[in-house]
Design a protein around this nucleic acid. Structure first.
Lengths: 325, 325
DNA sequence: ACCCATGTGTTAACCGGTTGACATATATTG
DNA sequence: CAATATATGTCAACCGGTTAACACATGGGT
């Protein structure tokens, strides 16, 4: 691969002059500038970002840690985030933690060794101590890590409220909420808080189903839902913590002969693309992934620039009413 | 961030000795080794991979270019590939080309500047010339770029055959295939070839529907399928080039009052997770994504080591028969 | 005539880590 | 006693690019 020395030789100037042209610093005549650009083109030269990173102590890389990018929510998050980050001059290293604390730790160390400019953490959090050591910008996504680490989230409580209120508005008399483990201190737990609050306000009987921490065993969703609906056949409204869970619920309802939405209404969460693709189309609480992604990257940039940032960055959700209600 | 000099000072040895310990080279006594490791731990030191990459001319980074990771197929591909690559000591830079040739070119340049060890290209191909210039390992995923660039694919022809033969076995009398643009020279076109071959062998009437190059406009799928099934209501078998298309087909069939699989049978492709999640579960031709991902990474490694590799790397597909047939 | 701006080159140090060559000291082996 | 192995340090160069300081030449303006 050609280096700056090769370009200097080809253009008949010094390495310093080539560097001046590359960085547009100092005095440079037009003739010299043209000569240098032409030499770069003839040699098919591109500056080595590794060398530049070493010198500038800035890699322009962001590390993104997700449970698994195979999950539609994290897939769409990654797509938005990488697209925005790239438009801001950043590259994204993708890391799948599989919600394994030791893998998460390994990835954090790897990202640190690779001098990433920042980390966006969308996975299970380690002990807070690990983050204190990091000495680089971290933004938590849909998670609260510590008072010192900014996080981007959407209004989970409002999302829960909107969902339950719609169920009640549509005439549901007995409702259930399926969510992740409430023992994990997740921001999404506020959806459940809202679910209970509204149900208790309106004196509507309700049930809660928690999945295990390994939240991506879809068969488990189906099993839990099947048990729930078998034990409580009068449940006529389901609020689920993801569209994937909602799809599982739809499947279970079909098996039990319950018509959607006539016999049972279903509301999912996230509003990933698949929600409007399946039939019936899923009513979902939409998290503004594009905006959340953009905000995450901007927070990383602000932290890099030493600017003060809000720790809590909460965006509104939106009810996308479709055919399952 | 602590450097090797800080470690040397803390341990009371020279920088060279620390480097010897880090790399396990030369003579090192146990006592010295322990001192150095203890100093690293006390200082929370981790070697700077940027500096190492510069010196070794090896970044241990693989660039993965996909059309969009938001698409379930590429999401699952990315998850498998990153997981395997990481287990082999590689990091993955994710790039979403949006099937835009100029973005693809930009990403290739960016990856080159960042001294990635190799590129796995799962997006729309640029002109072959661009790859000739690259001077780094490239593996094409489900694409043929040139005789010099190895590619990983699955047996598309066999996949097409399996699909059509199952439709016919299930009694279909009139079938249709929905695929991407056949003007693009894609390996997936062999599915269509097989579709036609079998239909013609068995003298079964058939139709073909091609989508535009921008293949992810799902509404377009629905529109094309709606038109097709309205114009040809006797079609009783659909073979679609992805599970996402299959889901769109299911939706259209519901709207037209066609029962699946009683009135019309549907077969998708890829066998992404969502295929078995929806109801009815989709019969799909399964591409072995885990194996294909692993093979892609191994090919990059072989190319890096200067080992000869096969240009064509074709893995078998598998018919996953479910409820839509 | 002097000062300032423009333009380019030379030199050296640096970013963090690696490594070869060689020096010095000590211990072990034949 | 000599040769070899072990152990550690010193020195310098390198990976590719950046940049400051200074030198030198030329031209323009006051």
């Amino acid at each position: 691969m050609p280096t700056i020395k090769d370009v200097a030789e080809r253009a008949g100037v010094s390495v310093t002059t080539v560097s001046r042209v590359l960085n547009n610093r100092g005095y440079i005549s037009e003739a010299t500038r043209k000569k240098v650009y032409q030499a770069m083109e003839e040699l098919d030269y591109q500056p080595n970002e590794v060398a530049r990173s070493l010198f500038r102590k800035k890699s322009n890389i962001i590390g993104l840690i997700v449970p698994t990018v195979a999950h539609p929510f994290f897939a769409e998050l990654t797509a938005y985030l990488e697209t925005y980050a790239y438009s801001r001059g950043y590259k994204v290293l993708i890391c799948n933690s599989q919600l394994d604390a030791s893998k998460e730790q390994e990835y954090i160390w790897m990202l640190r060794r690779n001098q990433v400019d920042g980390i966006i953490m969308a996975s299970h959090t380690l002990e807070v101590e690990e983050y204190k050591k990091l000495d680089l910008p971290v933004v938590a996504f849909d998670r609260f890590i510590s008072k010192r680490i900014p996080y981007v989230t959407s209004d989970n409580y409002q999302g829960g409220r909107l969902a339950v209120e719609l169920l009640l508005e549509r005439g549901c008399k007995q409702i259930a909420h399926m969510c992740g483990s409430l023992h994990l201190d997740m921001l999404a737990n506020q959806r459940h808080r809202a679910f209970m609050d509204v149900a208790e306000e309106r004196k509507v009987p309700y049930f809660t189903v928690e999945t295990d921490i390994n939240v991506f065993e879809v068969e488990k969703y189906e099993e839990l839902l099947s048990d729930l609906l078998t034990e409580h056949p009068d449940i006529d409204g389901l609020f689920l913590n993801s569209d994937i869970m909602a799809i599982a619920a739809m499947k279970v309802c079909r098996k039990l002969g319950k018509r959607i939405p006539q016999d049972i209404k279903i509301i999912g969460y996230d509003d990933v693309s698949i929600a409007s693709l399946v039939s019936p189309q899923i009513t979902s609480i939409r998290q503004p992934l594009a905006e959340m992604s953009e905000l995450s990257v901007r927070l990383i940039e602000a932290l890099l620039e030493g600017k003060p940032v809000e720790v809590e960055n909460c965006l509104p959700v939106q009810l996308m009413e479709r055919e399952t209600t």
